[in-house]
Amino acid sequence: MVSNTKIESRANRGAFYIMLNHYPSETGIEPQDFNILHFANSYNLESKHLLFIRNVAEQELGIKINQGAFIL
């Protein structure tokens, strides 16, 4: 995530989409058991991306991630 342009944002969203679709099959978890912090750690993602990841995960996995999920 380098730039705030529309093209870069779409590319980032696409990358997170691919990662989010791969993650459950790789880990064997169900979407409702998705943990955003474990996901970020698995892919060595910086915490500044968590809100963007949350938005993509909620839409693509059909789940709701509450604010408490961001507390370490």
Rank of each mutant, 00 (worst) to 15 (best):
M1Y: 15
N4K: 08
T5G: 08
K6I: 08
K6S: 08
K6W: 00
S9W: 10
A11T: 10
A11Q: 13
N12W: 06
R13K: 15
G14A: 09
G14N: 12
A15M: 07
A15D: 03
F16K: 01
Y17N: 11
Y17I: 00
Y17Q: 12
Y17K: 11
Y17L: 13
I18D: 06
I18A: 11
I18E: 03
M19I: 07
M19Q: 06
M19H: 06
M19S: 07
M19K: 14
L20E: 13
L20H: 07
L20T: 05
H22I: 10
P24K: 06
E26R: 05
T27A: 11
T27L: 08
G28C: 06
I29R: 05
P31A: 07
P31Y: 01
Q32H: 12
D33K: 08
D33V: 13
D33C: 13
I36W: 07
I36R: 01
F39M: 08
F39H: 04
N41M: 10
N41K: 10
N41D: 15
N44S: 13
S47C: 06
K48P: 08
K48T: 14
H49L: 07
H49T: 05
L51F: 02
L51Q: 12
I53P: 03
R54Q: 04
N55S: 15
A57P: 00
E58R: 01
E58P: 09
Q59P: 08
E60I: 13
G62K: 01
K64M: 10
K64E: 15
N66T: 15
Q67V: 03
F70T: 05
F70G: 02
I71P: 00
L72E: 00
L72W: 04
